[in-house]
Design a protein around this nucleic acid. Structure first.
Lengths: 122, 122
DNA sequence: CTTGCCTCTGACGTCAACGTCAGGTTTTAG
DNA sequence: CTAAAACCTGACGTTGACGTCAGAGGCAAG
C-alpha cells in the first residue's frame, strides 16, 4: 500500500509517516518511481508508535525500545531503559490520578445543591 | 516573600513564576521599588499549578479551572470544562496503563532465563 | 492527452513552557 | 560605602512533532 492509504488506515497524517521514517521508526520499500510502499503489518506498527508517543515517549526512546517491544526480547541496555520508562509512566499515572481526584471533588461539590449557595448567576 | 524564595519553596524556576503571572495564573503585590512580593499561600498555589501542568493541562485551561479548584465552587461553564478534562485524563491514564502493560511484558520476558535464548551478547 | 489526485523532496512555520541573555535597579552583607 | 546577590523588563532562543507550502513528477480514468 502507498503512504496515503497507510495514513488513513492508521489514523495519522502523511506528514507524520514521513517524519517517523526520518526518525528511523518506520521503513518503507520504494516503487520504481520512488514512491513509498508499505506491507500490511505497517499499520499495526504505526499504531504502536502512536501509542508510545501518546504515553510521552520521545522519538529517541521509541527508537530504542520499539525493537524489543515488537520482538519481546531486550538487551541489557534496553532493559534499563524499559525500567526507567516504566517508572516514569507510573509517576505520570500517579499525577494524573491526583489531578483527577481534585477535579472530582469540585465536580461533586458543584452537583451538591446544598453546597452551591456561594454561586449566584447574574 | 520575594520571587527567589517562592521559587525555591515551590520547586520551580523564577522564570516560570514570572511566566505564570504573565498567564494570569499567579498574582503578586509589589514592593515600593517594584519587586514582587508574595503571601505565604502562594507556594501552595504554585504547587497546584505545577500539578495541573504535569497532568497536561494548558495555561488557558488552568486559568479557567484554577479558581474553582481552589474555591471548590464551579460555574456551569467551568463544570463542563471540568468534565471534559476529567475525560481527557481518564483516556490518558488508559493509554499510559496500556503502554505500561506492554513494557511489563517485555520486562518479564527479559527476566525469564528460559526465554532469553534469542539474545547473545558479543 | 489531459485532467485531477497522489506522491516526492526540501524547507520554513507553529506552539507552549519556559531558558537565557542584556542592561539596568535594588537589596543585603560586611 | 561597596561589592555581591537578587530583582526588574524586554526580547530572543529552544525543543519536539509535526503543519504547510512550493515546485515537480507519477498514475488511473475518460
Amino acid at each position: 500500500m502507498r503512504i496515503g492509504e497507510l495514513a488513513s488506515r492508521s489514523g495519522v497524517s502523511v506528514r507524520a509517516l514521513r517524519y517517523y521514517e526520518e526518525q528511523g521508526l518506520l521503513t518503507s520499500l520504494r516503487s520504481p518511481a520512488g514512491q513509498r510502499v508499505y506491507p500490511e503489518p505497517a499499520a499495526d506498527r504505526v499504531r504502536l508508535i502512536q501509542l508510545l508517543y501518546s504515553a510521552g515517549l520521545s522519538s529517541r526512546t521509541i527508537l530504542e525500545l520499539l525493537p524489543c517491544v515488537e520482538s519481546q526480547v531486550a538487551t541489557p541496555e534496553s532493559a534499563a531503559r524499559l525500567g526507567a520508562e516504566r517508572e516514569r509512566i507510573d509517576a505520570q499515572i500517579a499525577e494524573l490520578t491526583a489531578v483527577r481526584e481534585r477535579l472530582d471533588e469540585v465536580i461533586a461539590m458543584s452537583l451538591d445543591p446544598a453546597h452551591n449557595c456561594e454561586y449566584r448567576p447574574v
